[in-house]
Amino acid sequence: MSSFSRFKAFELDVLKEVGNIGAGNAATALSRLLDKPVDMAVPKVSLLPFEEVADRVGGSEQVVIAVYLRVEGDAPGNMFFIIQEEAAKRLLGQLISLASEDPDSYSEMEMSALCEIGNILAGSYLSSLADLTQLLMAPSVPSVARDMAGPILTYGLMQYGEMGDSALLIETTFLEDKEELEGHFFLIPDPDSFSKIFKALGVETE
């Protein structure tokens, strides 16, 4: 596993499907929580230079709410559910009528609720993936942060740091009534997990 740039188009398609199934289930879970339809964009699988990863959610300094889970088990990795602040407040309002007046501050209760939403969504993402691959994929206790997108996402890229300047990630975006909810899912498998995922799905790799 020296380089990911040699992944074939077919293999990238397989990873896209992985994102599709995982995020599809998460979207269904979110839709049940909100009691309204939630759509998702076609997943993107990309090998991105570290610098550009945060650009996907508005840039390195963009303040976002992120729920992070470490995936443990057969195919370890990192998972992030990232939403913009506006969307987070809207989500809180719709879900638990919790949104406070102040758009710039979050109570402990609000953060905890967001963490739980992320946890439910990530859990359904991972369990569908585990069903599909028959691999053990167990999420850690979730952790939530409100901070700049750059440092948050970099946290999940460390395993790639020692082997190059880019990381392979599977990204899905949620849409609500065609309007972007600005909910992003990032699954960043550890570099060594890809061969296990491929093998579990019956994809021949050299």
Binding site: S60, G150, P151
Partner: peptide
């Protein structure tokens, strides 16, 4: 000036 953004664990 020299500037770097998004330092987390870095």
């Amino acid at each position: 000036n020299l500037r770097t953004t998004g330092l987390g664990s870095c």
